[in-house]
């Protein structure tokens, strides 16, 4: 389980360099790549998951264990629960108008126009 502890913290340096690089890639993708919005969201969320994995495996020693099992299995469960809560909430509360990229007579982005529609629905109060 525990790897041979090296004198030089190579794991940490590699992890740090990777996380800085991934952040820059994510920022570039979001701000100046010009990809379609849905692709930007998919790309940067994937980059975030990779970065979280770097933190957990390279910095947090998630594969280490004492007398009990290593904690990665319960963290995996926690992330599954988190994904279900977020995706489930979006599915129940927002499904049907956030994916509307069709109409052209509003403003620029697909997302903002659908949000405007949803706000009009709520203008009663």
């Amino acid at each position: 389980m525990e790897k041979k502890h090296s004198k030089y913290p190579i794991n940490h340096i590699v992890g740090f360099a990777l996380s800085i690089t991934l952040t820059i890639i994510a920022a570039w993708t979001a701000l100046s790549s010009g990809l379609p919005t849905m692709w930007i969201i998919i790309t940067i969320m994937a980059l975030a998951v990779i970065q979280a994995a770097i933190q957990l495996f390279m910095f947090m020693h998630i594969t280490e264990s004492g007398a009990t099992n290593a904690p990665w299995n319960m963290m995996f469960h926690a992330f599954v629960i988190a994904a279900i809560i977020v995706a489930g909430s979006l599915f129940v509360m927002s499904f049907g108008f956030t994916h509307d990229h069709g109409g052209g007579d509003h403003h620029e982005g697909g997302g903002s126009e659908s949000h405007e529609e949803s706000q009009e629905d709520h203008e009663g109060h």
Binding site: T68, P71, M75, I81, I85, V86, G88, S94, H115
Partner: peptide, 29 residues
């Protein structure tokens, strides 16, 4: 203690996931 803290962190993930879900649902409003 270390195992117990990992359990706490797993619970924290659940806590933050509800806040992320709230934010995502209210996005744009």
């Amino acid at each position: 203690n270390i195992v117990g803290f990992w359990i706490f962190l797993a619970a924290e993930i659940a806590l933050f996931s509800t806040l992320f879900a709230t934010y995502a649902v209210l996005f744009g409003r």
